[in-house]
Simulated scan of single mutants.
Amino acid sequence: MKTHQVLILCTGNSARSIFGEYLLRAKGKGRFAVRSAGAHPTGRVHPLAVRVLRERYDLDASDARSKSWDEFKGEKIDFVITVCDSAREACPIWPGQPVVAHWGSPDPAAVKGTEEEQYRFFVNVASQIARRVELFCAFPDDKLTPLAVQDIGRQFRMEGEAGFAR
């Protein structure tokens, strides 16, 4: 079985791309070698992202770190998935013509409010990403086409996002 190289990109690499990295690594069960990075990494993983992964998904992300996508320049990547619009627009060209898909989610780190309100928003974003990851993992290798992977990003929109069906 081939292990697919996946890079999940965001701007800060502090929450959304971390969710994608840890959820896909767990759900993919060795089928995907997953890493995440940011265009302008914050230098720290948001503590609520680590908490959500631990409490909701029983995943230990205490070793997660916010890093630049420059660390992966020149590497062979099979799938590049952007999870924020800024990363999508600034995404560099990767060698080997990987499948590039956009699975945009709102930025939980930008949400203001009480810690409980912020936590709920982090949970909602993680849930959206988890559903997309589950769909991605459900495809057999021969069906992981560019169109199929790109279409996953149009699935599971959150209330308030463009195109959200009520």
Rank of each mutant, 00 (worst) to 15 (best):
V133H: 11
D60I: 06
R120S: 06
L144F: 04
R120Y: 05
D63K: 15
E117G: 06
G20S: 12
E71R: 10
H4E: 10
F79T: 08
K73G: 04
A64Y: 03
P98H: 13
D85Y: 01
E115D: 12
A49P: 10
D63N: 12
C84D: 15
G38P: 13
C137S: 08
P98C: 12
F72H: 11
F19Y: 15
D60F: 03
I81M: 02
V111P: 01
R16N: 05
S68T: 14
R154K: 13
T3R: 14
Q118C: 05
D58W: 01
S105A: 15
A90M: 05
V50A: 14
A165R: 11
D151F: 11
A64M: 08
E75C: 02
A110F: 09
E134C: 01
P92H: 02
R88S: 12
F79A: 04
V100T: 15
S86K: 09
D141K: 05
R16V: 05
C137R: 01
H102G: 05
G113S: 07
P41H: 12
P108L: 12
Q128P: 00
G30P: 12
V52C: 04
Y119G: 01
A39F: 11
C91G: 00
I8H: 01
V125E: 03
A148F: 09
S66F: 10
P106C: 05
P98R: 12
R56N: 09
D85E: 13
F136K: 00
V45F: 06
A138R: 15
W94H: 10
C10N: 05
V123L: 04
E75R: 14
K143T: 01
E134L: 08
A26S: 13
A61H: 10
L144D: 07
R31G: 09
W69G: 03
S62T: 14
F121Y: 14
S62V: 01
F164Y: 15
R51A: 13
I129L: 13
R56L: 05
P92C: 02
V133R: 01
A15W: 03
A87K: 00
V111T: 10
N13D: 12
F156H: 13
I77Q: 00
V149L: 14
Q155D: 04
A64W: 07
T145Y: 08
F72Y: 15
E161K: 08
A110T: 10
R35G: 01
Y57N: 05
R54M: 06
S14Q: 10
G74K: 10
T145A: 05
R35V: 12
T11N: 09
C91A: 12
D60P: 04
S17D: 10
P106H: 04
E21D: 08
V6G: 07
D58C: 05
N124W: 01
F164V: 06
A15F: 04
P146Y: 12
R35D: 13
I93A: 11
T11R: 03
G153Y: 00
K143Y: 03
Q118F: 00
P140Y: 07
A165C: 07
I93E: 14
C10P: 04
R132E: 07
A126M: 09
Q118K: 15
Q5P: 02
R54N: 13
K2R: 14
K2F: 03
L48K: 06
Q5N: 15
C91E: 06
S68W: 09
G163K: 07
E116S: 11
L144H: 06
E159A: 15
P140D: 13
